[in-house]
């Protein structure tokens, strides 16, 4: 459906897309789409999938009356069917300075961009709408969700031009997004999450409260996780703050404890609010991450069944 040539974009891997072409991003939450699609709608529609019975009220279309039920109960009941619609997804790309971190595995932003674009491509492929929001101190790009292939080009162009810089404005951006996007959507957040965990969880909770399905991709470099320095280092803040000269061996334990606490807080918070938390190691297999994400979402949808929210 999409007419985008993956090979024309450096951050798209045609081979991966080809392998994942049979997979689709499915959501458990019923969506409120604009057109018919492959996802469950939050409203009742004219699909062939039976949803539920309800009492007949004046004005209902009589053709939906279940006469067999009337025969048994001598009461009028209307059969309702599931509606299928498309979804709208928003990719939130953290464009703060910390996304430029690169220990030799490529920058974090490149990884996030790659992830975002692959997902955007797949979503547009399956007929869903994708929007983009890049948040950073100097970048505040906002692209509404569209499902047209040309829109995908625009999205890719924007992603290519973004230059991460400055302090993180992720929390505010997520709050704004929650307020702005009225109809429920899928929000895919790609960030390093180097903001206070409670503030981030507040913002994510805001999104969940607005009935959006949120997935948080915390992208981290192995060096940040291992902190394997063996001599004094002058750490320069990528987000422009003051630098710090320290002996890593002295602060190793406390740093790792702090990092672990932060990640635990995010994990626990995401679990609590049923946010899909993904920790992506930049030296890990990108395709595996995507595959597991898609499969788990497919499984969630199957487990969700006919539950309506």
């Amino acid at each position: 459906m999409a007419s985008v040539n993956p090979s024309a974009r450096p951050f798209l891997d045609g081979a991966v897309l080809s392998r994942l072409s049979r997979m689709q991003l499915q959501v458990a939450t019923p969506m409120l789409g604009s057109v018919t699609g492959m996802h469950r709608s939050a409203t009742r529609g004219a699909s062939v999938e039976f949803a539920e019975y309800r009492k007949y009220v004046q004005g209902d279309d009589p053709k939906h009356i279940d006469w067999q039920v009337y025969a048994r109960s001598d009461r009028f009941y209307i059969k309702e069917f599931e509606a299928d619609t498309n979804l709208r997804a928003y990719v939130v790309l953290d464009a703060s300075g910390s996304m430029l971190f690169d220990s030799g595995n490529g920058s974090r932003f490149d990884y996030a961009r790659r992830l975002a674009c692959h997902l955007a491509y797949m979503l547009v492929q399956q007929g869903d709408a994708v929007g983009l929001h890049c948040c950073g101190e100097h970048e505040n790009l906002d692209l509404p969700a569209r499902q047209a292939p040309s829109h995908l080009h625009t999205l890719f162009d924007l992603v290519e031009q973004v230059e991460p810089k400055g302090e993180s404005t992720l929390v505010d951006a997520l709050h704004n997004l929650a307020e702005r996007v009225q109809r429920r959507a899928v929000v895919l957040v790609m960030t390093d999450a180097f903001v206070p965990a409670d503030e981030l969880m507040d913002a994510l909770q805001h999104l969940v409260f607005c009935r959006h399905e949120v997935s948080l991709f915390q992208i981290m470099d192995p060096q940040e996780l291992e902190f394997d320095f063996n001599r004094p280092v002058r750490f320069v803040d990528l987000e422009g703050g003051a630098d710090l000269v320290a002996d890593p061996s002295v602060m190793l334990q406390t740093y790792l404890e702090g990092l672990e606490n932060h990640m635990t807080a995010l994990r626990d918070g995401c679990r609590k609010f049923q946010i899909d938390y993904r920790n992506a190691r930049m030296d890990g297999d990108f395709e595996t991450l995507l595959t597991s994400f898609l499969l788990e979402h497919a499984g969630k949808k199957a487990a969700a069944g006919g539950q309506r929210k």
Binding site: G97, S98, M99, L100, F101, D102, R108, D192, F194, V195, P196, D221, E224, F229, R231, P232, V233, R234, F235, V236, D237, L238, E239, G241, L244, V245, A246, V250, M251, Q253, T254, Y255, E257, G258, L259, H262
Partner: peptide, 20 residues
């Protein structure tokens, strides 16, 4: 020392301040 551009400064600062 060598210079390293670092992203996770929030953890470093607290480590340098507290537990070190």
């Amino acid at each position: 020392y060598r210079t390293v551009k670092w992203a996770a400064m929030m953890f470093l600062r607290s480590a340098d301040r507290d537990a070190s």
